[in-house]
Amino acid sequence: MPEAIAWRPIVEADFALLSDWLTRPHVHRYWNHDFTPEGVSRDFGPGTRGEEAGEDLLVSVDGVPEALVQRSRIEDYAEDFSELGAIVDVPAGAVTIDYFVADPAHTGRGLGTAVIRAIVADTWSSYPDCPAIIVPVVAGNTASWRALERAGFRRVGEGDMEPENPIDPPLHVISRIVRPEARA
């Protein structure tokens, strides 16, 4: 298990690393992004300039870059809010995350779950009015939704949403974790 998980916002100097990560088959399978320098700049540049409501976070483990996490309030992205809200209740202030572990040798060993747990804990302090974190995952990405379950999320629904990769069917598993005080 990693000793220290830390993150910081993506900066333009990280684009070459992101491009490399997005080419990796296990990442590209579910993160169907243009990994060319132009594509990475187009997709991640607005976040580095503060033009996006969400966060793109470079996650390091024991000082080594290992993962990417995106975090945002669901209501800041109207299309996502509408699509997700048609399947499950999305309370005001709810946050969503998306993530991947870059090195395939580090998948399936609990790193993704540890990163998710760390981001969840930080979300409760960074977003003090967030009542829940809700994460849709394409149903075929079993490793991802199981990592959420191991991190304390529970499945709250299933339904059709636009998949990231057009080769996937639209069925998504929706998982949620609520703010600890709300569980009492």
Score class of each variant (00 low, 15 high):
Pro128Glu: 01
Glu38Phe: 08
Phe35Asn: 15
Phe153Met: 09
Pro128Ala: 01
Pro166Phe: 14
Leu171Cys: 10
Val120Arg: 02
Gly152Asp: 04
Trp145Val: 08
Leu111Gln: 00
Gly50His: 07
Pro131Ser: 13
Pro91Lys: 01
Ile74Gly: 00
Asp80Ile: 12
Leu84Thr: 04
Gly140Val: 13
Val69Lys: 01
Asp20Asn: 08
Thr96Val: 04
Gly112Ile: 03
Val59Ile: 15
Asp56Arg: 00
Ala16Tyr: 08
Val95Phe: 01
Trp7Val: 01
Leu22Cys: 09
Ala4Ser: 11
Val64Trp: 10
Ala67Gln: 08
Val95Pro: 01
Arg73Ile: 11
Arg42Ile: 12
Thr113His: 07
Gly110Asn: 11
Thr107Pro: 10
Pro180Thr: 10
Ala67Arg: 09
Ala139Arg: 14
Gly108Phe: 10
Pro9Trp: 05
Ala121Glu: 15
Ala6Phe: 07
Arg179Asp: 11
Ile119Val: 15
Ala182Ser: 04
His28Lys: 13
Ile74His: 03
Leu148Tyr: 00
Ala16Lys: 10
Glu52Cys: 00
Gly50Leu: 08
Val69Gly: 01
Arg71Thr: 03
Ser41Met: 12
Met161Glu: 08
Glu79His: 12
Met161Gln: 13
Asp14Cys: 07
Ile134Trp: 00
Asp43Gly: 11
Ala118Glu: 13
Ile167Phe: 14
Val138Pro: 02
Val59Gly: 00
His106Cys: 08
Asp14Lys: 05
Asp14Trp: 05
Pro180Gly: 08
Cys130Pro: 05
Phe15Gln: 06
Ala86Trp: 02
Asp14Gly: 06
Ala147Ser: 15
Phe15Gly: 03
His28Met: 09
His28Gln: 14
Leu58Arg: 08
Glu51Gly: 06
Gly152His: 09
Met1Glu: 09
Asp76Pro: 02
Arg117Phe: 08
Gly159Pro: 06
Pro128Met: 01
Ala151Tyr: 06
